[in-house]
Design a protein around this nucleic acid. Sequence first.
DNA 1: GCGAAGCAAGATAACGTTGTCTATACTGTT
DNA 2: AACAGTATAGACAACGTTATCTTGCTTCGC
Lengths: 374, 374
Amino acid sequence: MTASAMKWTTLQVARDKRAKNPTLNDVAQSAGVSLATAARVLRKSNYPVDETLKNKVEAAAKLLGYVPNMVARRLRGGKQGVVGLIVGDMMDAHYGIIAEAVTERAESAHGNFAIVCNMQRDPLLEIKYLHRLLEYRVDGIILAGGGFDQWTHHQALTEAIEELKRTGTAVASLMPRGLEVPVFSADNEAIGITIAKFIVENGHSKIGILLGPARNEMTKLRMQAMTSHLSGCAVDYAIANIDSTAEAGAIGAAEMLARNPDFSALICGSDAIAFGAANYLRAEGIDIPGRISVMGLGNTRLATLCSPRLTTVEMNFAQAGNAALDFILSQDPASMQSPGEIIPHSLVIGDSFARIETPAALRPELAEPSRLTD
Amino acid sequence: MTASAMKWTTLQVARDKRAKNPTLNDVAQSAGVSLATAARVLRKSNYPVDETLKNKVEAAAKLLGYVPNMVARRLRGGKQGVVGLIVGDMMDAHYGIIAEAVTERAESAHGNFAIVCNMQRDPLLEIKYLHRLLEYRVDGIILAGGGFDQWTHHQALTEAIEELKRTGTAVASLMPRGLEVPVFSADNEAIGITIAKFIVENGHSKIGILLGPARNEMTKLRMQAMTSHLSGCAVDYAIANIDSTAEAGAIGAAEMLARNPDFSALICGSDAIAFGAANYLRAEGIDIPGRISVMGLGNTRLATLCSPRLTTVEMNFAQAGNAALDFILSQDPASMQSPGEIIPHSLVIGDSFARIETPAALRPELAEPSRLTD
DNA sequence: GCGAAGCAAGATAACGTTGTCTATACTGTT
DNA sequence: AACAGTATAGACAACGTTATCTTGCTTCGC
């Protein structure tokens, strides 16, 4: 008999003796007690059960290999703590951080799991997933799909959200989306100002800015705050909105350099952009940060992989995701409202950014050290 | 009234008029038909229903905003096509490819979703997730958690798998795990040979090899085949087993260079290792591929992000994941066996690898062009 | 020693579906 | 015109739980 034949045989056997999972009723009968008693024992209810019966039930459950059926439990009654998480793009480290944090916390803190839905940057797919999650009657949904094209089909999105909320599904968002749901997010305007201040206070007066798509709400908020602050300082800056990818970052850096050859700092709207830009600049033989300082945003894995390591901004998306999850799962029906929560951000100092000395006349007053956290 | 106050008011209203989701019974009553008829219409059964009633039911469903309850449907009867996917490390591009492919196909081809469970390289967490997925009575589970420490708690893992199979849950693996489940995977021995052949046929005779942990089954298979082939050729090689990360790759490259200063090709067990190694070598001023050729494995995002772009091996994990998913969801109970499937791999030519000219005496015969795919 | 009170175990009704079984009305045939 | 045969609608049980209600028994106070 060949090893292969043996394997098939084993599988055959496994199939033939297929037995349905034992039910609570089976356990009760096997233990010689009523269904209710078995349920009380195995559900760890605080309803008192005689110790003898309790032991019998537990023995029977173990013997039969009883595994509670969450589907039935769920149909019957209360929330089991299943949440849906819709992310914009699984392969993007930005969302990866969120997915990892939320699934981890769902597991460890709430003993459950989050259903991760990858909307692949497609607004229609986001809506499709919302409907599907509604069909499965999840207890709550975390929207982490903002960050790009978020106004197409916005009406349909709003309606889907309303339907969910109306029927008792808690919804929260990790990005400002223009929806009537609590938002757990960093303060994007403050981030813009933090970055602008940091650049200016370090003496840079000619600045290139490569941001993500302008139709993205977060980008817009950051950009407005950033430019508004920069305009108040004696600095030149040029802005371009590009895709938030390394490839686009490289091209953007090249164009920025061609049009604006003497900028000394490059602000990037994401670590991906910064990574691509830094790669391009390095390949051109430009010293980072000696000749040009580069800043990323997000403190993703790319910030570490980049050489030199990126100076960037940590937005604590993991923390935001956890806060949203706790909000959703701690729902007592009485307090469905939450104003959301502003998660603090912080500068992460890498090796891609250097202070530059400028004539005192151009330098803004540095009365106090820059605040690294807002 | 401030904008903020308005917002709270709106939420308040939404909470107060909270209405349970309408049930099929509600629809039936509203349409003035029986429950069974409503079910037949909305389930698109092939049981004939009068056109008038059909329209009435559909109108009522639309009016009430009926959304079918998958939990009930699932409890009642058949499979709904929910699969669990256990990945080793969500943030690792390697598993990201799998997660993205499987969730995408579950959505588009099967109209459903995969529950992605991130085991975080922890064998115990893998088992925990298996139990939880069993509790939720998923229709099938895809194991994509191999690739590192896979022998600790192997007994418990085997038992969990057996229990799943016994109760009718289809299980498949994307890596050889030493389990009695069908494996959908590239042929790791063939990969080892493909790489070894490629290196030798391109004239390299001093070779450094940085592989992942030796306790990993896939690594072991590749390594054995690779070294067995290399030993047959007139080449020198040195092997080190390190963690499969960019950081370890950088350190590994440094040590390899220190001990073995004249190797001309560096074979890496993953793109992450290759990325770190290439970064280190470049920083040391070593020309890639002029002085040293570097090869990755996996064709992940890192291969593209690396400069120069990595020459690597595509293992088609996405294809493997899809095959596993189709196997699981196409289950008619009669054919629960499958021997699994070998997914073809292929060389991906980047810019990190160069041919080297060696004395004819040392060169093996190149009677036929190298086969790029196995 | 008897009624009230308490306590633990069992019976039962949902939860929202779907498959099967039954009932009814209508068609067609001799 | 009566009967078989075929449509189509409705009734109902079951999926595996849990919460509530009922029941039977013990115990306590007077």
